[in-house]
């Protein structure tokens, strides 16, 4: 397959306005990836699929990753006026990198038998803006996998034909694969209609005719 830099320039020349960053991978696997912007994601993905050189027709793996807020401590030299003398003083600054959710796609080509090309999309934050464009219209294999990300991470895929929970039950409220997910104390607890049924049953008993007095009969103890 072409090196990532070349793929990047090819995409940028084909899709006008596309912003692409190469995300380096320091590990021995050397699987670097392309971070594509959400606005042009569908156009970029379509180019990757249809370009005769790349022909990435097989979207193998789609998954989500949760990145929490990170604080980075930096030591910066700052000029300060101490006792009317200008000095250079070390100052530690904390920089907070806001967290985000990420969707990662592993693309292969069956026609050209190469791959993987890894593309990723990021949401702006983890709470309010967790929307990403869906790539299911391009690769059908993303259908269940994007549903799974929606289910477990809470990314809303816009343009997905059938975005519902898939592994958890429909009434479930949280997103269990998020890093800050707290497990409930009682796993088994689930509100059931049993309470309502019991209430109805009690009202039913109250309407019964009065008791016949049999419960008052006490067996003599000394028999």
């Amino acid at each position: 397959m072409l090196p990532l830099e070349q793929i990047k320039t090819r995409i940028e020349s084909a899709v006008s306005g596309a912003k692409i960053d190469i995300v380096a991978n320091g590990g021995p696997s050397q699987q670097a990836s392309l971070l594509i912007d959400n606005e042009h994601a569908v156009a970029i993905a379509r180019f990757l699929r249809d370009d005769p050189e790349l022909r990435l027709d097989f979207c193998s793996n789609v998954t989500g990753v949760d990145w929490l807020d990170r604080t980075i401590k930096k030591t910066v030299k700052v000029k300060q006026v101490v006792d009317a003398v200008e000095k250079e003083v070390d100052e530690t600054r904390q920089e907070v990198i806001p967290g985000y959710l990420e969707a990662v796609y592993h693309l292969y080509s069956i026609a050209r038998k190469h791959g993987p090309l890894i593309i990723r999309m990021r949401t702006t934050d983890r709470a309010a803006e967790t929307r990403l464009p869906s790539l299911t219209p391009l690769w059908r294999s993303a259908e269940f996998q994007e549903r799974e990300i929606f289910d477990l991470y809470g990314i809303y895929f816009e343009g997905h034909p059938d975005l519902r929970r898939i592994l958890m039950w429909d009434e479930f409220e949280d997103y269990p694969m998020r890093k800050d997910y707290r497990e409930p104390d009682d796993y088994e607890y689930e509100p059931t209609p049993h309470g309502d049924v019991l209430e109805k049953a009690k009202r039913h008993y109250a309407l019964r005719p009065q008791l016949d007095g049999a419960e008052n009969i006490v067996e003599p103890l000394d028999r």
């Binding site: 991978n25 320091g26 590990g27 021995p28 696997s29 699987q31 193998s60 793996n61 592993h106 890894i118």
Partner: peptide
Amino acid sequence: RPPVGEAYGR
């Protein structure tokens, strides 16, 4: 402890 990075194996 593997080094920082990511890998997809199939």
